[in-house]
């Protein structure tokens, strides 16, 4: 029997939880159909997370592409189907990617080794400078911090995931929470070990009374704890947090059954969510909003 997982009409970091909840009762080796026929919109997080879902399956899953022509065409331009065809048996009409998508700063890119990070950072720099200064009204100097943030999050995959993941960067208009301000969003998703398992592999690791995915996320994201004894480790996520704070941005990290977020005043997300349906690896989203006059510099 094939289990059907319905992808919500609008797929982002919040609604992806609906996908994970449906998956919770389906064994990894079960036949699966991911049904995205009625999906009309997806964030970079939604698209990269769908691809990592494909990585988690022991039995190659089927994937029904969006029926809406503009949606499918857009997904093609983000590079989604290029990787989806490696991970899923695709069903429905899958358009060929024609031309670039202006809102896509970095089309979906696989990150598996150090050279991939060089490639990602090299490709994004020039375009990021243009977008940050012209669309988001952010000082062009912020481009370096943006590239550093991207680099550090991608390295997380290489150092801790144990397998390749996906990154995508895109700009769009945030209608719900930011009164139609523009945002730039980085999504980095992998289906690897996740934070808890990574920290448990530290030499001399001692499990505390309250040790779970949430505790692991707090340790790594808030306190900069690393599985390495090297005191220089753990600076990457700390640097990301500083950058996010400077530009009134948001970062959220989901791993296992928990999600932690550094939440700015413009967002109503909760800082820590526990007891989520389990999903392997880690999924990171960084959002930098357009700066309005009087905002942080």
């Amino acid at each position: 029997m094939t289990s059907v997982i319905t992808v919500p009409p609008s797929l982002d970091d919040h609604t992806f939880e609906q996908v994970v909840e449906q998956l919770a009762s389906v064994p990894r080796d079960a036949k699966l159909l991911i049904d995205a026929r009625h999906t009309r919109w997806a964030s970079p997080y939604g698209l990269t997370a769908l691809l990592t879902l494909g990585q988690t399956r022991e039995e190659r899953a089927s994937f029904a592409a969006p029926e809406a022509e503009d949606t499918a065409s857009y997904w093609a331009r983000t590079g989604f189907f290029k990787f989806a065809e490696e991970l899923f048996d695709l069903r429905g009409v899958v358009p060929k990617a024609r031309g670039g998508e202006s809102s896509v700063l970095l089309e979906i890119t696989q990150v598996a080794k150090s050279e991939d990070v060089h490639d990602v950072v090299g490709r994004i720099q020039q375009k990021a400078q243009q977008i940050l200064s012209k669309e988001l009204n952010i000082d062009a100097k912020a481009t370096v911090g943006f590239a550093m943030t991207l680099s550090e999050i991608c390295q997380n995959i290489i150092e801790h995931a144990g397998r390749g993941g996906f990154v995508a960067v895109q700009t769009y208009t945030y209608r719900k929470r930011l009164a139609s301000r523009r945002v730039v969003v980085i999504a980095v998703c992998d289906a690897g070990f996740g934070f808890r398992q990574t920290l448990e592999s530290a030499p001399g690791f001692v499990r505390s009374d309250r040790w779970d995915d949430a505790a692991a996320l707090e340790a790594a994201v808030i306190r900069g704890v690393s599985r390495f004894r090297d005191p220089g480790r753990g600076q990457g996520l700390a640097g990301v947090r500083r950058y996010i704070g400077r530009w009134d941005g948001k970062v959220s990290v989901r791993s296992g059954t928990a999600k932690i977020a550094i939440v700015p005043s413009w967002d109503d997300d909760v800082p820590l969510t526990e007891k989520l349906a389990p999903f392997p690896g880690s999924q990171v989203q960084v959002t930098i909003p357009e700066r309005v006059s009087g905002g942080p510099r």
Partner: peptide, 12 residues
């Protein structure tokens, strides 16, 4: 590689 001018990643 001649293409890269950024010092990124720990292995690099």
């Amino acid at each position: 590689c001649e293409l890269y001018s950024n010092l990124v990643t720990r292995p690099t």
